[in-house]
């Protein structure tokens, strides 16, 4: 007996370790096969209130939920804004609105390759279809190119295939917005006639010539400009309002009159 006690005392640390390890192992293995422990989890009062205090601070860094709410609010506001010309009609009756706005989140961004496509988390199920305009809170982003059930790809303005109708704000001088692949913060506006007075810093907005974007969606400001080889049109470098490397929430714009416009146009061309 004496020897056993001596043995235990001699290796008391090993026994203590074995004891703790056994408790931990039982808890660990239980947690693999059963529900979370009812008493030892983070929802308890002490842990819960510490997390609560922590999230009071950290919510400033992860404002996702808050953001979502604001996006939805913004969506509503933009819808009203784009339809402001019909102000005699009841502004809350959405069936009369020409432009519908959906919100979406960016899943994959791309701005480094010559043909950039952006993936968003809304698809056919949510009412997204081809050729919807996509904008950010700051400005234009691109046009929906392909749609699947739950996702959609957006052809970014940073795409050599992109060609968007744009104009100088406050005037009716239209041009085409293209991208020369050199710099992801700037796109090029071409086909602006030479006689147009330009100033660096002028705002460029979308024109009303396409049925994709509403008129006057901001694009960017004139960074610099020069004449093209024929000396008859300007090549304008436009610095984008949207920070293309840092986008999360986007809006999709649907023009309800689009089909009618396109049908009429195709009949006219025939």
């Amino acid at each position: 007996m004496q020897r056993i006690i001596n043995f235990v005392l001699r290796y008391r640390n090993a026994f203590l370790y074995a004891f703790f390890a056994f408790i931990s192992l039982v808890m660990t293995i239980r947690s693999h096969s059963y529900h979370q422990s009812k008493f030892f989890n983070s929802s308890r009062w002490v842990t819960g209130s510490i997390y609560g205090a922590g999230s009071d601070v950290s919510s400033y860094f992860s404002l996702q939920e808050e953001n979502k709410r604001l996006v939805e609010e913004n969506q509503q506001l933009r819808k009203m804004l784009f339809n402001a010309q019909y102000d005699s009609i009841d502004p809350l009756n959405s069936s009369l609105a020409v432009y519908q706005v959906l919100d979406a989140k960016l899943i994959k961004n791309s701005f480094t390759s010559p043909r950039n496509y952006i993936l968003i988390d809304k698809g056919v199920k949510d009412g997204v279809h081809q050729d919807m305009g996509v904008i950010t809170t700051d400005g234009i982003l691109g046009i929906v190119e392909n749609v699947s059930n739950n996702f959609a790809t957006v052809q970014s303005v940073l795409n050599t295939k992109s060609n968007i109708n744009a104009k100088i704000k406050g005037t009716q001088y239209f041009g085409s917005l293209i991208w020369d692949t050199k710099d992801y913060t700037a796109v090029q506006l071409i086909d602006i006639p030479r006689l147009v007075p330009l100033v660096v810093g002028d705002t460029i907005v979308t024109g009303g010539m396409s049925s994709i974007f509403p008129e006057n969606v901001p694009i960017g400001i004139i960074k610099k400009y020069d004449l093209d080889d024929a000396k008859s049109f300007y090549n304008i470098d436009v610095e984008l309002f949207s920070d293309m490397a840092n986008i999360k929430n986007v809006y999709l714009i649907e023009n309800k009159d689009k089909e009618e416009i396109e049908e009429l146009e195709s009949r006219t061309i025939e």
């Binding site: 931990s24 192992l25 808890m27 660990t28 979370q36 030892f40 983070s42």
Partner: peptide, 8 residues
């Protein structure tokens, strides 16, 4: 308990 990784 805080990180819900009981006993790891």
């Amino acid at each position: 308990i805080f990180s819900d990784t009981l006993a790891l």
